[in-house]
Nucleic acid binder design. Structure first.
Lengths: 112, 112
DNA sequence: CGGTTGATTAACCGGATGGTTGAATAGAGA
DNA sequence: TCTCTATTCAACCATCCGGTTAATCAACCG
């Protein structure tokens, strides 16, 4: 699966987003991360694997603990992706967009 | 499922993101949207249902055609959500964040 | 060594997902 | 009306997903 799909899929779960929110306050072990949730430690471990595959966290090793750390780069990527569509929700940006179009000689704006 | 999860799940598929990209160029019918893809029309119809449930498109009715229109509000929402984490990828923003913290009397920054 | 703690792996289950084919619906037009 | 086009609905299938329990691995500690 492509990178962006992995990240979006990882974020499409409230538990995983809560884990990221927790990690924003600092690194944490699996047990610490699992504590607030009514699910098993194994289930949390699976969530962490999904987040790791998506590049949203990295994991170290400190004796028998596996501290998790937030990695924000993919979040920057999805933010940038969404910004592509900003002109569809931001009126001011829309007008700026129109203005920028008038400055162009060619009629096409290439983007994906 | 909560709103944000629906949107992220909808975006976690390259075909659906390609459909959104196409709709950024203007409204389109199901057949027009399906044309570039090597999958059946019915499969595209299912994708559109997912996008509609997530609030990412709306559909009108023009005779036997069901034109699809991009709705950007959920994209604004996920952009705003990701921006929460900006200080973790933006060095400059990080320093601003530190500065803002020093202005606070309390030591906690409440956020989810 | 043996035991305890932290974490992952394995096997399983029910439900969702993404695709298919085939039938049904809705409207335009001869 | 009969037909053609656009689209959806229904049933089916393989795979994935989020959860469980049980077993295993890894590292510390007595």
């Amino acid at each position: 699966m492509d990178r962006l799909s992995l990240v979006f899929a990882a974020l499409a779960d409230p538990t995983r987003r809560a884990i990221l929110a927790r990690l924003a306050d600092g690194d944490a072990t699996v047990n610490q991360l699992a504590e607030p949730f009514p699910i098993s430690l194994q289930a949390v471990s699976k969530h962490l694997k999904v987040l790791e595959q998506a590049g949203l966290i990295t994991r170290g090793r400190d004796a028998q603990w596996r501290p998790c750390r937030l990695e924000a780069a993919p979040l920057r990527d999805i933010s940038a992706w969404a910004e592509q569509y900003r002109r569809f929700w931001d009126e001011r940006y829309d007008r700026l967009d129109d203005y920028l179009r008038t400055l162009q000689t060619g009629p096409t704006t290439e983007e994906k």
